[in-house]
Measured scan of single mutants.
Amino acid sequence: TEVDLHLGDITIKLKDVSEEIVKRAKELFKNGWSAEFVKKWIEEAVK
């Protein structure tokens, strides 16, 4: 499945990412993480 994760003005296309990771990524962004950091976190999380 593909998900578009909207973080501010940046959209990250996610492939084969669990709902849990998407939820967590949104929380991290809301908590002040930059979109770049969230993207890196996701990449690490799906390895």
Rank of each mutant, 00 (worst) to 15 (best):
R24L: 11
K40G: 13
K23W: 05
K13C: 10
L28P: 00
L28A: 03
S34L: 10
V17Y: 06
A25V: 04
L7W: 07
K30A: 15
T1K: 12
K40E: 15
K30H: 10
K13H: 14
L28H: 05
I42E: 00
T1W: 13
K23Q: 14
V46T: 11
S18W: 10
V22Y: 08
G32Y: 01
L14K: 01
I10Y: 11
E27Y: 04
I10C: 07
I21G: 00
A45L: 12
S18M: 08
E20K: 07
R24T: 12
V46I: 15
W33M: 15
G32F: 02
T11R: 09
I42Y: 02
N31R: 06
D16H: 08
E44G: 07
N31P: 01
E27L: 07
D16R: 04
D16W: 08
E44M: 11
I42G: 00
L28G: 04
H6V: 14
L7Y: 05
T1N: 15
R24N: 06
D16I: 04
I42S: 00
I10S: 05
A45I: 14
V38Y: 00
E36K: 03
I12C: 05
K47S: 12
E19C: 08
F37R: 13
D4M: 10
I21H: 03
E2G: 09
L7I: 09
W33N: 11
E19W: 09
E36Q: 07
L5I: 10
G32A: 02
E20S: 11
K40A: 15
K26F: 08
G8E: 04
L7T: 02
E44K: 09
V38N: 00
A35R: 03
W41Y: 08
R24D: 05
I42F: 04
D4P: 03
W41T: 00
W41D: 00
S34E: 10
K13F: 06
E19N: 10
V3P: 05
E20I: 08
D4E: 14
N31A: 12
E44I: 11
E36G: 06
L7D: 02
H6N: 09
E43F: 06
V38S: 00
E2A: 09
F37I: 13
D16P: 03
T11A: 07
V22F: 08
I21R: 01
E20V: 09
G8S: 04
K15D: 06
E20Y: 06
K15I: 14
L28K: 04
K40F: 10
